[in-house]
Design a protein around this nucleic acid. Structure first.
Lengths: 223, 223
DNA sequence: ATCAATAATTAGACATGTCTAAATATCTTT
DNA sequence: AAAGATATTTAGACATGTCTAATTATTGAT
């Protein structure tokens, strides 16, 4: 029972972690397969290995759930990933839509204190360029009071863009087109019943936000 | 015939490159095996794969030599490795003896322009923390006018420490003890015939440099 | 409660990179 | 030039992570 975890093992843990963020209960084989674009059979294979290493609790035919050690590994990966994203955007000048793939590789670099040193160098940021919270060295983080734009109780008044639910380039490019970045203030005017698109203003300019965007954009109300 | 090269393939290319720097002619199977602490049989296996990808020229029972494409890959890896070492020392505050293992992992992160952006961020350094030259984006580099301290024609006068031949932690720690860093000026006093140790002064303080150190330290004469 | 649809697992295979042991080639010495 | 030493290669095996096809379990609808 070694301490080394392969890249694959790490990717599975991270995927399970992320999926558990958005859903209660066990994570199913097929969900993981879709997420990692692999076959359900491969997922079953790997899940058994993860369970043998005590990284997940596995109930055959039902699904998996991270154990405490599994959660720790996943959290460290997420922390590393998000810190590297900050580095790539802030220090190397990348666009926020271009950093995910690179951070995906950088996060797997292992070293005792690399992540902590990187955090210190970056000034211990709390959020990554997409608005996702960065866990501290103990794995703790605070999620700002955010909600999906599509799930606001009242589509009215000022809100601030706090984060993205999906991070695909298709999505960030769309946002770039609309002129929406992290921290953008939206003055909500109302919602169109027909297609659930949302009318808003950015700095006085009218804007129509499709439901597909609204359901992937986290905002917080102002005041 | 894909463009993807595994971590293993990359490690082999880099090893062959480095060994070719210190020796003319073909690199032998056993040398590579020693370098990568693997078996000669495994090296033969891998060499055939490298040859199939046109990364090395392979003469059975004789040895290998990098092809032009192989040389390009190796040079890019070396460039990336050395830039990351600069980053780790200059930005994250690592000691020069602690960065090799980490850079060994970082160098394999693939991205179109990561290396170039990193170089720009660091101010296009020409040498890494051990004094090794960093190739530019075209693979060109200049080696300063340096020679091993053990091979100086005359052990006399001022020299400046320009680089290390080996990069093991044992060696860098030894240098730290002696108070020798990159750029240190040594005032050479003479050589002891008995064991080839070298008498020198650093900032007026006497120092005895064992032959084992002298044969791994590059220096340049001053004037 | 049964049947069809969906989901998950097993079986058997493959690719990559590694290994040891055995066989073969090359080199060195006389 | 032959023999012993050294270096290299081949043969056969194994571990990891993946796959497809076939089988089995679970779920949802009637």
């Amino acid at each position: 029972m070694s301490k080394y975890l392969s890249r694959s093992v790490q990717d599975y843990l991270k995927a399970i972690y992320s999926m558990a963020q958005h859903k209660a209960g066990l994570i199913q084989t097929t969900e993981i397969a879709d997420r990692l674009t692999t076959s359900p059979a491969s997922v079953t294979d790997m899940i058994k290995k993860l369970a043998a290493k005590d990284l997940v609790d596995y109930t055959p035919y039902k699904g998996v759930k991270l154990t405490k050690p599994g959660l720790k590994v996943a959290t460290e990966l997420i922390r590393s990933h998000r810190l590297w994203e900050v580095f790539l955007v802030e220090k190397l000048g990348y666009d926020w839509g271009d950093v995910h793939e690179i951070a995906e590789q950088l996060e797997h670099v292992v070293s005792d204190d690399l992540t902590d040193r990187l955090a210190a160098f970056l000034g211990h940021p709390s959020y990554d360029p997409h608005g996702d919270p960065i866990p501290d060295a103990q794995g703790r983080y605070r999620l700002s009071n955010r909600v999906l734009l599509s799930q606001l109780p009242r589509v009215d008044g000022l809100v601030k863009v706090q984060g993205l639910k999906t991070h695909t380039q298709d999505f960030t490019q769309y946002l770039d087109q609309l002129g929406i970045v992290l921290g953008t203030q939206l003055d909500l005017q109302g919602i169109n019943a027909f297609d659930k698109s949302i009318r808003a203003q950015i700095a006085g300019t009218d804007l129509l936000i499709p439901a597909s965007i609204a359901s992937n954009l986290y905002v917080s109300t102002i005041q």
